[in-house]
Amino acid sequence: MKILLVQHQNFINGSGGTEKICTFLANGFSDLGHTVEIATNQDITGKPVFTLNEDVKVTNIFDKNIPKIELKPTFNYDGFNPFKWILYKVKKKKIKIENKKLLRKNGGKDGIYIKNLNYRARAWKSFIDDRQPDVIITMTIGSLLEITFENEYKIPILNSTNGRPDYDYSDILWYRSPVK
């Protein structure tokens, strides 16, 4: 049986409980003779912290060519030069105006999140269709959302909740939108 474990973030270089459980499951299924692959989508280099069996494959599907809408960060000048202070104030104001336009154009923070999620979900769909696993196990509700957003699969998907379900399932967008 081909088993795909998905931990969309924090698996590479991650030393938390979810990473440990993911490794435990992967090694356990591998010991039973199954073909096991762990997939992640991280803009990072490194390797898993916990020891994996030699036959467990880890794949990072991150592709810098997948579109991503990002707001530009703002910052303050910490120096003492009054001319630089003015220059940084002007730059900060310009960035804030650009960010407001970007937010307006894309339907606010939720709109940007959903567009970015859609781009990532397409990458996951392509990857999963290519691998054709017999079962998928997601390690978080976020990983489940990443692979299933506007995608349909005929493959059984199990979600392993390794935290507090009341917290994990309270808001799938990971933050609270302001009440209008």
Rank of each mutant, 00 (worst) to 15 (best):
K2Q: 07
I3P: 01
I3C: 04
V6W: 00
V6S: 03
Q7H: 11
Q7M: 13
Q9N: 13
N10D: 13
F11A: 04
G17T: 04
G17S: 05
G17F: 05
T18W: 01
T23P: 00
F24S: 14
L25T: 05
N27T: 09
F29W: 06
T35Q: 15
T35C: 12
E37N: 07
I38V: 12
A39D: 02
A39Q: 04
A39P: 01
D43K: 15
I44N: 13
T45E: 15
T45M: 11
T45S: 14
G46K: 06
K47R: 11
K47Y: 08
K47T: 12
K47C: 08
T51G: 07
T51P: 11
N53G: 04
E54W: 05
D55I: 03
K57P: 04
V58D: 02
V58A: 04
V58H: 03
T59G: 02
I61H: 02
D63N: 14
D63Y: 03
K64D: 11
N65E: 15
I66V: 15
K68Y: 10
P73G: 05
P73D: 09
Y77H: 05
D78M: 10
D78C: 08
W85Q: 12
K89N: 12
K89Y: 08
V90Y: 13
K92C: 07
K92M: 09
K94A: 12
K96R: 13
E98M: 13
E98H: 10
K100M: 06
K101Y: 09
L103T: 00
L103I: 02
K105W: 01
N106E: 04
G107E: 04
G111R: 01
I112F: 00
K115L: 09
K115D: 03
K115F: 05
K115E: 08
L117P: 00
L117R: 03
Y119P: 02
R120H: 08
A123S: 11
S126L: 11
F127N: 00
I128H: 00
I128D: 00
D129F: 03
D129E: 13
D130Q: 11
I136Y: 00
I141N: 01
I141Y: 05
S143R: 00
S143G: 13
N151G: 06
K154V: 07
I157W: 03
L158H: 12
N159C: 15
S160D: 10
S160A: 15
S160F: 14
G163Q: 06
P165M: 12
P165L: 10
D166R: 08
D168W: 10
D168M: 07
Y169R: 09
D171F: 07
D171Y: 09
W174C: 10
W174Q: 13
Y175I: 08
P178Q: 11
V179K: 13
K180W: 07
